[in-house]
Design a protein around this nucleic acid. Sequence first.
DNA 1: GATGAATGAGCATTCATTCAT
DNA 2: AATGAATGAATGCTCATTCAT
Lengths: 228, 228, 228, 228
Amino acid sequence: MSPKIVDRQAKRAEIARIALDVFAEHGVDATIEQVARAAKIGKGTVYEYYRSKTELIFGSVLTYFEQLDQLTQDASQQFDNPEQRLRFEVKRIVKRLLGDKRYSQIVVGVLRMTNTKEGRLIDRTLNREVNRRFVALITKRILEGISHGVFRPEIAKQTEVLAMNMIAFTDGLWFSYYLERGKINLEEQLDLYLHIFFQHLRKTPSASADEKVVHPRETMAAKGSHDF
Amino acid sequence: MSPKIVDRQAKRAEIARIALDVFAEHGVDATIEQVARAAKIGKGTVYEYYRSKTELIFGSVLTYFEQLDQLTQDASQQFDNPEQRLRFEVKRIVKRLLGDKRYSQIVVGVLRMTNTKEGRLIDRTLNREVNRRFVALITKRILEGISHGVFRPEIAKQTEVLAMNMIAFTDGLWFSYYLERGKINLEEQLDLYLHIFFQHLRKTPSASADEKVVHPRETMAAKGSHDF
Amino acid sequence: MSPKIVDRQAKRAEIARIALDVFAEHGVDATIEQVARAAKIGKGTVYEYYRSKTELIFGSVLTYFEQLDQLTQDASQQFDNPEQRLRFEVKRIVKRLLGDKRYSQIVVGVLRMTNTKEGRLIDRTLNREVNRRFVALITKRILEGISHGVFRPEIAKQTEVLAMNMIAFTDGLWFSYYLERGKINLEEQLDLYLHIFFQHLRKTPSASADEKVVHPRETMAAKGSHDF
Amino acid sequence: MSPKIVDRQAKRAEIARIALDVFAEHGVDATIEQVARAAKIGKGTVYEYYRSKTELIFGSVLTYFEQLDQLTQDASQQFDNPEQRLRFEVKRIVKRLLGDKRYSQIVVGVLRMTNTKEGRLIDRTLNREVNRRFVALITKRILEGISHGVFRPEIAKQTEVLAMNMIAFTDGLWFSYYLERGKINLEEQLDLYLHIFFQHLRKTPSASADEKVVHPRETMAAKGSHDF
DNA sequence: GATGAATGAGCATTCATTCAT
DNA sequence: AATGAATGAATGCTCATTCAT
């Protein structure tokens, strides 16, 4: 029946993956033809798997975020303290994301689609898609912290608000970093936010015993990381 | 000093102002012709004042931020407490900005120019331009707070870092707000951040006597309040 | 004679029949894929039976006209008067054809192929194919009329010319009907033409005793009657 | 104010005229680029005057029919007999039209647009536009014939029906001629129709004294014009 | 024989920019 | 200085046809 057996699902995913790189390189202004060339297929073949360019962008972005699950999941087990662990995880995620050209292009790409009909559907979906992962992670750690007795129990009911707050900060951090690449001290800003954030969560605000657990080797593009 | 020069600059500025509205309405995808029509001048005349569309966007964005000076300057004198004052000012600025269609379009417009040759020069300049104002404001208030004896003197040496931190947060807040218009509780998030931010600045972290001076109508549980 | 050959021809015919419906629905702009889907076969299979889309259109049109043979053949035996009989037959054919979506699409389809290399060959062939049937029918009836003594013997030598004249008229009638669907009174126009046509054939021009034998419901003044 | 003064109306018309020739040559499948090249202007310039290809086709067809007004207006004054005059006029119009490549391409072009949304609006408008002219001409002559006492007064009330009948016939004649170029004897068919048509109009059907008034030199592509 | 995946030529349309007046 | 007519590069998308399996 089907002589040329092709795993359409797999090929679709592969095209998305390649498109992701092309978009990361040239922005979403990249031509379908560029994508096709990169994927070593014909222009028409792209349309065999994606109805429109918008759909392809959507697909490639989703692909990216599926890869992100790794980031949020295989978090290191080396810390038994939830605060240290979240601290480690957040820094790790932020650094990876902000250091990833593809992430920036995706964000920009999504934002600029905002003015198009199709785009409007996509951007919100994506945003929710991304946030969902981080909210889940942060919520989990906060609750762990509470049950470990290190975080105040009262905050249990506002985990989502807290998570969104951290997301807002990291998004904004990306923004500054993206536009002023090199001028902003990522590590320093992140540490500052985490410091005041956890201060708020802890039972004894002053007891920030172990603020600098995270392996300082990862400091990216840091220019005089104050390490306060 | 000749009247012609004044004319040119005035006209240049006027075009930028009109372009700003057009871009706010249609995004930077708006045509030069649309701008010309709105300004009631010929398409070619636009090029008499701006070498390229990119330059026009640049100009219109700068115009916008010049208008912002007002925002950061005529801050209310009703508070003698620097914390309350900064709190009030930040909330006021954030709400005005986030409620302004033009701001969003500008941010998006600038971001999408990132991939162009000309764009690369512009975005950084702009970012610095904008940040400069806010850093100055925040720094000023922090120093006032220190001299008033309410903030810890040690932070004097990191005012810029603190200012950048707040900027990052508010940028990220815009981001969430822009994409999830209506889902995020602006007031709540802002209050949360300001709470932990000032907690960090104060000499006695617990003495947050007057956290909700400004418009205390909205708090944690509320969802869907964008009435400003 | 081998069964395979029969299969191929049957399948070829079936594809043509289905294609005919598809073309009738969407015009000859319909995709090969649409045809294949309608026929529940693969796109490539269509090419197994037809070398090109043009050939398929050709095939489907021929199929249609083969079906027309019925129209011209099982004409009612209820009239022994050749004039009445031809009158009845013509009206019946015209109404069926003009009421058939497929006919219009075919005509239009054939016409627009005129500008293609392949098309040029086809259109004439088709036209001849179609006309042949009607010329034969009309000629036959005219000769019958002559031998029955109702038509003038002189016209025997111009039967083909007369037949072509009637064909031209009915073609043109389709044209008006197709473009002004609803504005033209089909019955009225047909009656008028047949009236003057038979007037010319008859020995005694005035003795048009039975002009409206068939469905006399519609006449001159009526406007907007397409009830067939 | 307007430095480069261009008569937009005139240029628009000129483009239409050139497009008409291009479409006549290659059918409406002709590219906008082909039209632009023929008009010696840039592709974009075409769009400066016509919003879309469909609009251009529409425009070029209208232009053609405006030229037709000449055809129907400056009818020869050499005949004082309305029948002879109409006869002459009809033959003249038909021959000019059928001998004009552009006419055929226009008809085909219009027909094939029938399946498009925009097309549907256009085809009817056009058809009405064309018919209006001929109906007016034919009606006029018939009424003249009646007042001259050569046509039966009873037909005064069905002039429009008669006009539409003649139009249907000539349309159909075009059809046959277009598809079987050279096979059909235009003159012969036209004479036959006019013969039976006027037979119907005249007071004394037999007295067709002057059937062949029309200058027989114009016989086109005639292949043994019987001249019956 | 049947299939459908792959292909790429082809085309309408947009719009920043130029430049003659 | 002001204008708007002219331009053509650039691009998303369609679809008949091919061909490996």
